[in-house]
């Protein structure tokens, strides 16, 4: 290019070089010619961002160890996804944020004291067994984060149920979770530990209780979840019917007699709020219609209560969602939206 004489520079094109403009070949394409600004990546990273306050709260409550858990888990998930996609010879898509979100959600489902190598292994299971072998994003049957958690609970039951005391609560003597206490010592003991019912609810709601990283603050999770509903990233029916079913069953059947259970305790404790807004509503593994979401959520709520009340584990959110994931294809097959006339026919 240096040999080109600089004596005759081409003049800048006029704003309207009509001949040139009209000579350009027009591109045709099928309608619609415009589309939403939403994208997979935008949805995934936005969901991750709405979890940031809950992660920050966990870091405040549990110390930097909480952040290490999140970083290791998300990092392992992303690395595993990239490695498998490289092996499969398909485009590497970690930028879409779905593997990161899986890692983040898994980290929020495990105790802060979990050895980091176990956390990483859980993330590898989530991506390498529950997601990629099915065909990657959009094709997996089970919620990958919950599949990873189930794997960890089956493999390392002791570490998965060892709860480190909160750094901010010097006067909390026990390091058991409220649901664990309920299972082993009964409701009066739980209430006594928190100095009465109002203290209990306040601690649960604001997040001064022990548990997994994502079990601590119902308030922050709720705010994040409401944001997702407002963005229409999730159906409101899922969380409402899930939490509603658990609350109803806890009230009717949860106490020693009929209708004297404690619905608020059941709703605010454990991973219910996290599960309701962030796991049950996973686009890939939950039904595609609002009506399907209702069936799905009621079924999952029923399972949560059955596990909490009669099962061997204190908490049932993870299994309730995994079990209902099995029914999603069936629900989607039989629940179809109807036009007004079809509905009457």
């Amino acid at each position: 290019m240096t040999s080109t004489p600089a004596a005759e520079p081409t003049p800048p094109a006029p704003v309207h070089d009509e001949r040139r403009l009209y000579a350009a070949l027009l591109t045709v394409a099928a309608a619609p010619h415009v589309r939403t600004r939403e994208s997979i990546a935008r949805i995934m990273w936005t969901v991750s961002a709405t979890l940031a306050p809950a992660v920050a709260w966990a870091a405040w409550q549990f110390g930097l160890r909480a952040l290490a858990q999140v970083a290791v888990c998300a990092g392992a998930a992303v690395a595993c996804e990239a490695a498998i996609q490289k092996f499969r010879g398909v485009p590497i898509t970690w930028r879409d944020g779905s593997a990161f979100l899986t890692g983040l959600l898994l980290a929020l489902c495990i105790p802060v004291g979990m050895p980091l190598w176990m956390t990483a292994l859980g993330a590898v299971f989530a991506i390498g067994i529950a997601k990629q072998p099915f065909g990657g994003l959009g094709h997996n049957i089970f919620n990958p984060a919950h599949a990873g958690r189930a794997f960890l609970l089956a493999s390392f039951p002791v570490q998965m149920t060892t709860w480190t005391a909160l750094t901010t609560q010097v006067d909390v003597v026990t390091s058991a979770t409220p649901l664990g206490m309920l299972k082993e010592q009964g409701m009066p003991a739980v209430v006594a530990t928190f100095g009465g019912p109002s203290g209990l609810y306040q601690s649960l709601f604001l997040g001064n209780v022990n548990g997994s990283l994502g079990e601590v603050s119902a308030l922050l999770l709720l705010l994040g979840g409401l944001f997702l509903v407002w963005k229409r990233y999730i159906f409101w029916q899922g969380p409402v019917f899930y939490i509603g079913t658990v609350a109803l069953l806890a009230w009717v059947l949860g106490g020693p007699g009929w209708f004297d259970g404690d619905p608020l305790f059941h709703v605010l404790s454990g991973g219910l709020v996290l599960g309701a807004f962030f796991m049950l509503t996973d686009m890939v593994t939950s039904p595609i219609t609002a009506k399907g979401q209702v069936i799905f959520a009621v079924g999952a709520g029923l399972l949560v209560f059955l596990i909490r009340k009669f099962g061997g584990y204190p908490e049932g959110v993870c299994y309730s969602i995994l079990l209902m994931n099995c029914f999603t294809p069936l629900i989607d097959r039989f629940v179809s939206p109807r036009t007004p006339k079809e509905a009457h026919a």
């Binding site: 591109t27 589309r35 994208s39 994003l137 959009g138 686009m283 609002a290 179809s336 939206p337």
Partner: peptide, 25 residues
């Protein structure tokens, strides 16, 4: 305005079902 970003996998998010005026999937 007519940018068409690369196609991704269907997330089964159900958005198309919710917005369909003819109640299809």
């Amino acid at each position: 305005e007519v940018a068409h970003p690369p196609e991704g996998p269907c997330l089964r998010c159900g958005m198309c079902v919710s917005v369909c005026p003819m109640a299809r999937k």
